[in-house]
């Protein structure tokens, strides 16, 4: 089955990658996302597991060490690039929105 490449990240994916800028194990990610979004975005364990194995297959995240009982993950270089690009894209969306919704054209800080 052909897998479509990641284009835009979904919200849970974005927060998952954001959480993995530092090493984190599975449940740690869930807590981190919950904390960062103050409970707005929740990732279920089953969903998280399938996202993690997919990201790992696509070399976006990697496992740090396998000797402890819990697998710990972190972004790969490719993962950082993808997250960065998404961050820029979201910024662009906000800037474009501002022009129309606030009438401010040259805001450099979001």
């Amino acid at each position: 089955m052909a897998r479509e490449q990641l284009k835009n990240l979904t919200e849970p994916m974005y927060y998952l990658l954001l959480a993995l800028t530092t090493p984190q194990h599975g449940y740690g990610i869930m807590q981190e996302v919950d904390r960062k979004t103050m409970g707005r975005v929740k990732i279920g364990a089953g969903t998280l597991y399938s996202l993690l194995s997919r990201f790992e297959k696509e070399d976006i995240i990697h496992q740090l060490s396998d000797d402890s009982r819990k697998k710990t993950y972190q972004l790969t270089a490719k993962g950082f690039v993808i997250l960065r690009e998404e961050f820029e894209r979201l910024n662009q969306l906000v800037r474009d929105g501002k022009k129309h919704l606030e009438g401010i054209g040259d805001s450099d800080e979001i």
Binding site: P12, K42, I43, G44, A45, G46, T47, S50
Partner: peptide, 14 residues
């Protein structure tokens, strides 16, 4: 607890 699947698209794919 948070449901095991929180993303319908992903759930459907699985």
């Amino acid at each position: 607890p948070t449901p095991l699947q929180t993303d319908e698209t992903i759930e459907q794919k699985i």
